[in-house]
């Protein structure tokens, strides 16, 4: 009796340990999880396929060059994106000139200079908060600062490229700071200590030792910021980029900057809100242009990351 009991138990234990029964629940769980990922992938594929398919007739019938070099038009068969591309490049130029140096400088202060004081913590909280502010709220800031504020209005010219560019620059600033700070943090302490050890000052340590090692990371983050700047739409709509369009006349450089403008993503918005049937293809073609630009920017970032990435 006792012996059979033991042997039965041993058999059961052996079977349980071998795990002959397939774990149906476990497999189902795994499939469900993979399904979640697969749906995300599927949405991406459908999105791209749908947009490209809708845009295809425009590129086929008119050619890429014609669409890209045509101006905005209320006639779908003549509408193009030239002004959008130029406007977007202007805006990105503002980001490059203003947000990137300012952001890297701020990151250097926070990572290399700041001690853990109350003020440092306040600045840190501010940066994190800014990163979470909805984009459209920056548009309101832009309106108040660059359009309504009487002292600045003559300089910016109201709802102009300058206002839009400055607003986007402000919007991406926290992202530049956060990504640059991450890159600086990844540089090992020993490099700094070695430089301090031979008598370098803090700035010399940063300039000659920390920055060169952090540069690839900062660079990659910076390029991703540019991608964000290319795609950002909401603040520009508040700042007049959806209704205005870049003058194509021979106005001077400063006048152009103070004049009405549009950008690639706001053009998508403007076309999408016109008569949907008539402008569906044009909107899709504009999106394709925007996505190609973003792809180029992101690919650059990825290539740089893979080429210069360093493991410590």
């Amino acid at each position: 009796m006792a012996a059979t009991h033991v042997s039965a138990t041993a058999g059961a234990v052996e079977q349980a340990l071998r795990g002959r029964r397939t774990d149906v629940g476990g497999v189902a769980f795994r499939i469900a999880l993979f399904g979640a990922l697969l749906i995300s992938l599927l949405v991406l594929v459908i999105l791209l396929a749908d947009v490209f398919r809708t845009a295809w007739p425009v590129f086929r019938d008119r050619g890429v060059a014609d669409f890209v070099t045509s101006n905005i038009s209320s006639l779908p068969e003549r509408a193009g994106v030239r002004q959008g591309i130029i406007g977007s490049l202007y805006i990105v130029a503002f980001v490059v000139v203003i947000a990137i140096p300012l952001g890297i400088g701020g990151a250097i202060y926070m990572e290399e200079y700041a001690r853990d004081t109350r003020l440092t913590r306040v600045i840190n909280a501010n940066i994190r908060n800014l990163a979470g502010v909805p984009a459209i709220v920056y548009g309101l800031l832009g309106i108040a600062l660059f359009v309504q504020f009487q002292a600045l209005q003559p300089i910016t010219g109201g709802r102009s490229i300058i206002s839009g560019g400055l607003t986007i620059a402000i919007l991406v600033l926290p992202i530049v700071i956060i990504t640059s700070a991450e890159a600086l943090r990844a540089v090992p302490r020993s490099i700094r200590e070695a430089a301090f050890g031979v008598g370098a000052t803090r700035w010399e340590v940063v300039r000659s030792h920390v920055l060169p090692y952090a540069a690839p990371g900062i660079f990659t983050g910076t390029i991703l910021t540019l991608a964000r700047a290319f795609g950002e739409t909401a603040p520009l709509i508040l700042l007049g980029a959806a209704t205005g369009f870049l003058s194509t006349g021979s106005a001077g450089f400063v006048d152009t900057l103070k004049g009405p403008y549009t950008a690639l993503p706001t053009l998508v918005f403007a076309y999408a809100r016109k008569n949907l049937r008539a402008f569906e293809q044009i909107t899709a073609a504009t999106i394709v242009t925007l996505l190609v630009v973003l792809l180029l920017v992101n690919a650059t970032a990825i290539i740089l990351r893979n080429r210069y990435e360093r493991k410590w």
Binding site: G106, I108, E112, L141, L173
Partner: peptide, 15 residues
């Protein structure tokens, strides 16, 4: 650098 870091505080206040 300190001034650059303070810009974020300024932006927050302005918002």
């Amino acid at each position: 650098f300190f001034a650059a870091a303070l810009v974020s505080v300024l932006i927050n206040v302005l918002i």
